[in-house]
Design a binder for these strands. Structure first.
Lengths: 207, 207
DNA sequence: CACATATTTAATAGCATTATTAAATAATCT
DNA sequence: AGATTATTTAATAATGCTATTAAATATGTG
């Protein structure tokens, strides 16, 4: 169980691979490209990770875990539904913002290689059952108290993911249409978008 | 200006290319694959469409027009805001349902080749200005009448597109998690989803 | 140091892909 | 039919990719 330094070639390959896979997807990233950016021989990529496919799966697995945890990690106690949702939406939004290409990658790879679903499925399944159940209990209680309409936890979560993810999927297009070419205007846009998503979700479940 | 028959090799190539590009994206579709499915020589693909890139652009241009029109075609007169939205959401949802891989294609190609944005941009820009303006006018009037909260037309449209598109982007995953393996359960899921989206959007803009 | 192990490189096999060319065949027209 | 144009094919050049191998270099260990 050695501590692998960030500067080791092995780690560098993984880092570069991560970045390139995220930027261009699987098919358009070659092991030659990866080696070139790392500054090592192309055979090294295979020496450490055996095949391009295995290397990709490692990246994809880690990234999809991150993505899912952001969404379904256990909710903190003692908060109102509104507080929970507001906090959860914001957290999820922010984590996607830190890896804005991740939704592209997931979508891209689900298209080109449907087998990748299995990785996602495994990572998702463990967490999802509990998470859905916990949220549904809260929603049912609020509904019984007449505070919200009848809401299915699964639908609600899909709504949140939809709105958050699509913000970044559509960002390149939005940048063109709404002229978000400098960093400042783009940040403003994202902040507005986040607020709008929270409003829409919270309002959307009202009685 | 000849009428090209559907059965001509030229048209067949385009049709097969359309399907394969939609299913697998640009990188994973080869001109050899296309020719093989059509049942012709691979050189013919180039004879008619010069290069794989030109062929793809033709497909992408047509498809993205379809996608945008579904969303921003002129709104019918004499309806309440709620009726307009309900109708528009449903139309958009249904059109995506008819080409469920289209969102994949768009997202996929935006990732792997950012230049493709230019095609989208051109097709989008013409329609979008008018469409946003018209919707915003209606929203402002309803807000003035105290019927809804202050709503930005652009944000509202993005919300609709997000929820609709993501339903199909996430369908492969949803199928796994929610066990939608036969056609019947999947149809039911999509119908529920559509209703949920309408509820969320309509509720989401309430005062 | 001497030996073993880990890392790295150069070379290359094997395959798939895009695109071009020249030649063959089919269709059209006078 | 004979000439002209359109369609189609086979062959292949040029390129790039993954993966493997054997050899070279570096690193660690007794």
């Amino acid at each position: 169980m050695e501590q692998i330094k960030d500067t080791s070639t092995e780690a560098q390959i993984l880092q570069v691979a991560e970045r390139l896979f995220m930027e261009r997807g699987y098919a358009l990233t070659s092991t030659v490209d990866i080696a070139k950016e790392v500054g090592c021989n192309q055979a090294l990529v295979h020496y450490y990770y055996r095949s391009k496919e295995k290397l990709f799966q490692k990246v994809f697995d880690e990234k999809s875990k991150l993505f899912i945890q952001a969404l379904l990690s256990p909710a903190p106690e003692g908060l109102t539904l509104e507080e929970i949702l507001r906090q959860r939406i914001e957290l999820h939004f922010n984590i996607i913002q830190q890896s804005p290409n991740l939704p592209f990658l997931v979508v891209n790879e689900l298209l080109t290689n449907p087998n990748r679903i299995n990785i996602l499925k495994q990572n998702l399944y463990r967490i999802s059952v509990d998470a859905f159940g916990a949220l549904q209990a809260i929603l049912d209680k609020e509904y019984a108290a007449g505070k919200i309409r009848k809401v299915d936890a699964r639908q609600l979560i899909i709504n949140v993911v939809s709105l958050n993810v699509f913000t970044f999927l559509s960002l390149p297009i939005a940048s063109e249409i709404f002229n978000l070419h400098n960093n400042q205007t783009q940040q403003t846009y994202l902040k507005e978008r986040k607020e709008e998503i929270i409003k829409t979700i919270l309002n959307g479940i009202k009685a």
